[in-house]
Each structure stands twice: as C-alpha cells, then as structure tokens.
Design a protein around this nucleic acid. Sequence first.
DNA 1: TTGAAAGCGATACCAT
DNA 2: ATGGTATCGCTTTCAA
Lengths: 337, 337
Amino acid sequence: MSRKPTMEDVKNLAGVSISTVSRVINGTRKVSPDKTEAVNKAIEKLGYKPNELARSLVMKRSNTLGIILDDIGYGYMAQYLRGIDEIGKMYKYDILLYSTFGDFEIQKKAVDFLSSKQVEGIIVISEKINSEILYLIREHEIPYIILDQFYSPEEFKTITIDYKQAMYDMTKYIIDNNHKKIAYVRERSSSYSAESKETGYQECVDDFNLESWVFNTPENSIEAGYNFLEKNIKKFRDYNITAIVADSDALAIGMLHYFYDNNISIPEEFSITGFGNTEISELFKPSLSSVRMPYYDIGAIAVRMLVKILRESEEFEKSINLKHEIMERETVRKLKK
Amino acid sequence: MSRKPTMEDVKNLAGVSISTVSRVINGTRKVSPDKTEAVNKAIEKLGYKPNELARSLVMKRSNTLGIILDDIGYGYMAQYLRGIDEIGKMYKYDILLYSTFGDFEIQKKAVDFLSSKQVEGIIVISEKINSEILYLIREHEIPYIILDQFYSPEEFKTITIDYKQAMYDMTKYIIDNNHKKIAYVRERSSSYSAESKETGYQECVDDFNLESWVFNTPENSIEAGYNFLEKNIKKFRDYNITAIVADSDALAIGMLHYFYDNNISIPEEFSITGFGNTEISELFKPSLSSVRMPYYDIGAIAVRMLVKILRESEEFEKSINLKHEIMERETVRKLKK
DNA sequence: TTGAAAGCGATACCAT
DNA sequence: ATGGTATCGCTTTCAA
C-alpha cells in the first residue's frame, strides 16, 4: 500500500529541485533538455500524477463548474449535460453535479456545497428556481448562468429559444395542414415560457382568423393529459375540433394514451402536437410531431459563455436565443382544403 | 470583489487562535462556551464557509466518489445515478462524473483524472469495459466497483441480477399464457448477461418441452429490431410463432414499430416481451411487458459497498444479486388452452 | 482549554 | 536555466 508519489519523490529520483519538476510538468519556463528528460523519466517510473487538489489550492483555480439541477432523470437533462460536459472538457473544466429535486432548502445547500468546493462558475438548470437562490449565488460572487423557463430572458439572462415564435410556427404548421378548429391545451401556470407559448399560439390563430379553444390542465404530466381528455373529449367532438396543440410532450403523450385506450385513431380523428421533442415523442407510435429544443446546444453555449465570463470577467449582457425546429411526424394529418 | 473569508479572518474577528476556530467548526475538542460563541458569531458575520479543497488536502480525504460511465444519456443511467447520488449524500460523499462513450482511451483518461482529483473510490458503469481499465484502477490503488454486464459475477465482483433466472421467469410468464411456439431474439454478442439470458430462456422452453427458435440481430438497437422483423416476419408466420421474447427493450420496441407500420395488431397477432424496463417500455402503447432491473438499488448498494470497503478496508468478497421483477403489461396476450 | 507551528502537495516569486 | 522558499487554507500534534 505505497503512498501516492508526490513531486517530492519525483524531485529526489530526478535529482533536481522541486521547482524544476513543476516547470517540466507545466511547461511554464525553459528547462534544459537533460533535466527535462530526467524528470520525465522519474515521473514515468513512479507513475506520478499531480494532485489536483493541491494545485487548485495554490492556483486558486479549481477548474470546476458546478451544475445545480432538479433531477438527473428528466429526459432532457441528459442532453443538457452532454453539451455542458463536452464543451466543459474542451476548456478543461470538470463538472460537479448537484440534484435538488426542486427543493428550495436543498438548492441553498447546493450553492454552499459548490462554493465550498471552489467551483469557478455555476449553471442552474431548473424548471422553476427561486430567485433567492440566484441572489445567494451572487453573494458568493460566483459567476453563474441559469437555464430556466420561468423568468423572462430580460429578468434573468439565459440561453433559450423564442417560445412565442416556436409555438407560432407549430400552430402555423397545423394550419398549413388545413385544420380550421383547433384546441390549445396547457398547464395552468404562469411561467414565462408557458405564457409566451400561448401568446404565439393565439397570435397565429388570430392571424388566420380561426376558431380556437384554450384549455387548462392542473399540471404538466402524462396523467394530466389523459385525465383531461377523459373529461373533455365530448366537447372536442361537439366543437368539431380536428387538431390539438399541447404545450408539452407529456400532455400530448397522455392524450395519445387516452386515444389508444379508446380506439380513437390518430391522426385520422385528431391531429396532435407536443413541445420539447423528448425521446418519447420520437419513439411513440404514432410518432409525435413536436418542437425541438436545442438542449445540447444550450448546454454547450452556457459553458462557452461562462468560460468567457470567467476568462475575461465580462458580464453576460443579454439572453441568447437559439433556433427551434418543428419536427413533423405522424400525429398531424393533412386535411383537404 | 472581496476575497472569500478564510479561517484567518474568523480568527481575527473572534480574537482566538486559528486552531480554536478549527475545533469549533469540527467539534474535534472541547472549547469553552464563550469562545465557541465568539467563533460562531464571527463565522456568521463573515459568511465563512470552509474551503473543502484545503481541508481535503490536509486530511487526505476528498469525500468524493468517481463514476466512470459510457454516456449519461442512456435511459437507465439516470436511475443508477439517483441511487448513487442519494446514498452518496447520506454518507457525505460527492460524486464526480466522467463520460467516456465507451472509448478505451477516454476511459484511461477518466481513471487518471479521477485519481488526480483524489477520489476515494470509483464506480464503473459500462456495457462493456476493457479489463485493462480495471487493472489501471488497481494500480492507482483506488477501491472500485464495476456495474457491468459483460463479465461474469465470478470474474469481477459486481452488483447485478440473476439474468438467467430473470429470463427464465419471463419465458415462464409467456408459457403461463399458453404460448406454445416461441421465438427468442437477441443481439449476436457474447456478453455474460446475454449468454445467461439465453440460457434461462432455453432451460425454460426445454422444461416445458416447447417448440422454440432462436434468432440473432447484428446489434442491440431499435433499428436492428425493426430490420430483423422486416426480414423474418414471413418465417414467424410460417412457423406459427405466437410469442417473441426479446433480449432487450430496444429490440422489442423496434419490432413494435414494425408491427405498427405494417398494421399488425399487438398483442392479438403476436405477443412480445422486452428486458430492462426502460422508460419507453412503460410509455409505449401497447405498453411493453419487460423485466425490471433494479437500477436505483444497484447504484445505492454499490455506494454502500464502496463506503464499507473504504471505511473498514474490507474486500468486496462476492457479487450481490438483487431481485428482478416481471412487469406484466399489454404486449402479452393470454391464449386459450 | 488554548495557541504555536508543522505539514498536506503543489505554484511562483526572488535570487543566483 | 535552476534552486530555495513563502504561500494557498486548513488540520493536528505538541507544549503550555
């Protein structure tokens, strides 16, 4: 059980000073070829690996980014993390994760934890983060970026998509397929993204002067979508609604489950769309038309921005909008004119 | 831009020695009530938080566990991580993740990285890890546990399920539904888990003396399942096969896609089962009967074991088998006797 | 009970 | 180009 070799060991074996060892490792200064070789040989022989903890301590740079997120299990989280991870590695930053399950107390803990781990920056990914948390991060004087859909991009700088335009485009896609009577189904909540999406929908149906109904569900989940239709399918039929625009994939999948269980063929009897382009939207049959959020890119850019702030101590001046994409799949039927 | 407060600052404000501050924080020794209060007040006032890096350096304990995984995006990975995260927090261990995409060179890097970050233990989660990586971890003298399905539980200690028994049970479930002609579809590969599963299947159909066919696909994916049926559906019909046991959910979902696209009703025309109980198996319609792997528990127990090894420098003596569960859902039809 | 000082494993400044 | 040494923020031994 031999102790891990340190620079001290390398120094002794190579017969040089400890400073020289450091120089060889970091290439910070010129070192004569023979000493360089001696050091490298010693390193090789000992299997020496620098202790990053000690290095971070003296350099006051942990090379670590902290991520505060609700739950790693959310389908899109992995995509965010891939983007963050990949670009993070590119800039030699490591990622420290902290799951909070959306709990305020745990979120506070997360900030303290990451701070004590000396992370250089923090990315907050949450469906709804209490603004107090953001102030707490500020107190710690750690640069941060939030990836959130609750506040407006003016209020808190973020990287996002143009929700209004995205839902406008989705609605337009429905209309282009000649649907005249459309229902919009959303969770009853007042997040910025939810409001924007509804506005986009509304503007589009107004622009085309179509009949439209807006419905609320108590929450955003598959069950909520299912229960919603159970209660309202009759209305849909009475109103001759032919297309349903859901504000999330979960709601849409819930409705598809209802349709399946009740032998209602999709898209023959109803067309339906989701939002988010989660994995299930692609794998479900019929596959669900949805709006793709560029999660990977959002994560990637978040890191880029953070690194920029860190390196150049610039401010994050304005929110960035990335492009969304309408994924046309099997749940939308083209009606005759 | 005030520097983060250190113990030095606390010491000055509280008018005690730095050792006393340390004692108050860690409760390592008795400190008089008045000094204790003075220190606590100073800490409060300054908003002091210990620098974990410095602490780890001197204590030679990073309180960190490293996880080497293929890709955070795999559906089941989140479940593993939840178990790891939760139990890790319980024991005050933090988690450092490293995605390798199954690449050997990156895996080597991961080990070096985690080692330099002074992680106390490593959990490797991979579909197929090169044994060289394990030797590398050993060289670093870091205790580790692998969660892998490639090697036998005798060869490398792990936490797993009894694959053979699981597939036996799944086959039995099919047989209990009176299916007499069954097909087994698996990826052509020779991992331990794949072999065990096939053995379990085989033993079961043999025990009941049933007609059975085993098929191979070039890989384990949704596409492979789809393409497989495209080529073989005729045989299935010719042989009057009524049930398909797939060795993974992915293969089964691929086949379900094929059935959907070709208007073959499930489970009326064919019964089919998967393995893994991935999220999609539950959300798909018809929902897929599958074998549940207790991912969360596997992750949780892995941490427990690792902590035990760390604390008591015990060895990890033998692999642990957790219970699987047959999830009976909509893709299996009960035939008349 | 308390404080002074050594040391954890590195970097970087200041000499030489 | 090279070496000696202070320092990073903390814990812990050793005296007092």
